[in-house]
Amino acid sequence: GTDSESKVTTLRIGHTLDTQHSVHKAMEYFGARVAELSGGTIEVKIYPGSQLGNEREMIELLQIGSLSMTKVSASPLEGFVPAMKIFSIPYIFRDNAHFWTVLNSHIGKTLLQEVEPFRLKGLAYYDAGSRSFYSNNKPIHSPADLAGMKIRVLNSPTAVRTVRELGGAATPVSWGELYTALQQGVVDGAENNPPSYYLSRHYEIARYYSLDEHTSVPDIMLMSLRTWDNLSAQQQAWVSEAMQDSVLFQRQAWQQSTAESLAKVKADGVEVIYPDKTLFVEAVKPFHESLRDTEVGALISEIKAL
């Protein structure tokens, strides 16, 4: 509802991470910036830790109109915007610089705009690093080491296919059960970015972390299109500016938390492996080939050309 007395617009942001995470801190920074720019007429309330739902559900809440903003990984967006599948395909970016070049290019901007027919406003990309394998009993130096290993994957056909192409047995396990599943040997390993590997304490069980960096799936800041349309042009400009500032803040905070996470797991005795990535890139070539004549395939060529 509207508050006619004070005329303060409240933006409610939900996310699934804890308050130590760089994303939460970037949202707090966004809140402070937008309050500053708007002279206190826009306030931000943050709901961390999946209080309001998981990522897929919060996207629906934006569409319903009971939540204003959320941060989601690009992968749950695939169910809404098929083009987002592109990020789940392994080794389409050469390195982090190439990744950001693509996100800031017309490709990234177009993808962000493609959420609009789905009643969403794509505000910005946040850094979520690259995902790599971690394992319990044996180190992973090459795809051959993955043979026969049960690797926990995200619940998406592309993620399942990626692990299969690399030789592992892709096993869907819910995030909540993963720590115990690793511990009891229901799965032999999993994959995630360094801060998640560290913050989930999976490193206590899985003592080998192999930085093969197979996928780079960005986080995306979304706003309900209904909320966006209710903002004045001036308010939209404030939100956009504050969001751009928070992106720079978050990218830096992410780099720092990645470095810290790796340092901490190393200090705890985890063996961090820097494998020869060309072996992995080679292994997913058939995957890329099979996509050649599809829309996604065309996009991959475009990305590789950048």
Binding site: E60, E78, G79, F118, S156, P157
Partner: peptide, 20 residues
């Protein structure tokens, strides 16, 4: 409302690929 919203916007489930 939820059914028509998810059908209209063609939301697909992650693993099975069925319409939500």
């Amino acid at each position: 409302q939820l059914v028509s919203l998810t059908l209209e916007l063609e939301q697909i489930s992650a693993a099975l690929g069925v319409r939500m």
